[in-house]
């Protein structure tokens, strides 16, 4: 066939596996074919279809930043057939990857602005990509604040990086766990993300807020952001509808006339307010 097969994945070797939390792992993936790896480019916010041959594909964001070429990372919780099979993979094994797909966080437009990241549980990966991207280009942005919460200390992902970020001094980080989820030596906050956000009282002027988390967290966080003065245009999130193709054809991820895989996954709250509630 004259044109390439858009469903054929890149072959990726699992370079490193990190256990993040119960049932949560991060894979560092390198291209089996160097040439493909050199040509590969993506931007913060994009996602891919990761596959275990014989089991199928699953949709995950690219959790590593585009400022660190040569590899990509994905972080997933073992939940369905494909993530279950992924979890059974070992370092050195080969999986498939199609991407990068979808739109991006408009980082170029955020130069000179403050960035406020708010994440819950397993939804830190899409923001971690942006956080590292911003940290790698630190002088382009003003204040960077990260508010991250999980059910318990064990459920926090990227624990080492959270410590690393806390030590850096060029970003403010607040980690929190739900009441009862703390350990005796826990030094972070205790409480739900919206409450921690309200207490932190970040300034809204010249700031964009990025929110990713379980639906209930997002639902309770958005009113707090509004109260703090964040406009819908400056509030960003990602949608995670079920997808199959990732490239605007299979119809699964449609929300109204929009394809989350093509027109998203990044949406502003202003855009979400215009969409039918089918996400």
């Amino acid at each position: 066939m004259s044109e390439p097969n858009i469903y054929q994945p890149f072959l990726m070797r699992i370079d490193k596996i990190t256990e993040e939390a119960p049932l949560v792992k991060t894979f560092k993936l390198v291209f089996v074919n160097d040439e493909e790896g050199k040509k590969f480019q993506f931007k913060a916010g994009q996602f891919g279809e990761y596959s275990v041959f014989g089991e199928g594909e699953c949709t995950l964001c690219i959790a590593s930043p585009p400022t660190r070429p040569g590899y990509i990372e994905c972080t997933f919780r073992q939940a369905g057939r494909v993530t279950g099979a992924l979890a059974g993979k070992e370092e050195g094994e080969i999986i498939g990857f199609r991407g990068p797909y979808g739109n991006t966080f408009p980082l170029e437009q955020w130069q000179g602005k403050n960035l406020l990241f708010i994440a819950g549980g397993i939804a830190l990966p899409p923001l971690r990509c942006v956080i590292w991207n911003a940290l790698d280009l630190r002088d382009r942005f003003k204040e960077i604040t990260v508010i991250y919460g999980a059910r318990s200390v064990a459920d926090l992902v990227y624990k080492q990086e959270l410590e690393e970020w806390a030590k850096r001094g060029d970003l403010k980080i607040l980690t929190t766990v739900d009441p009862g989820g703390e350990t005796p030596d826990w030094k972070g906050e205790i409480g739900f993300v919206p409450a921690v956000l309200e207490k932190a009282d970040p300034i809204c002027e010249n700031t964009v807020a990025l929110v990713c988390g379980p639906p209930i967290m997002i639902k309770l966080t958005l009113p707090v952001l509004a109260k703090l003065g964040f406009s819908p245009e400056n509030t960003f999130t990602t949608l995670e509808n079920r997808m199959k193709c990732g490239i605007g054809k299979c119809g699964h991820c449609m929300v109204g006339k929009y394809f989350v895989c093509k027109d998203g996954p990044v949406f502003t709250l202003a855009q979400l307010n215009q969409l039918p509630p089918e996400y």
Binding site: Y7, S51, V52, F53, G54, E55, G56, E57, K244, C245, K249, C250, G251, H252
Partner: peptide, 10 residues
Amino acid sequence: CVCFDIQDES
């Protein structure tokens, strides 16, 4: 109608 599913068989 053009919607489709993707399935692996091995």
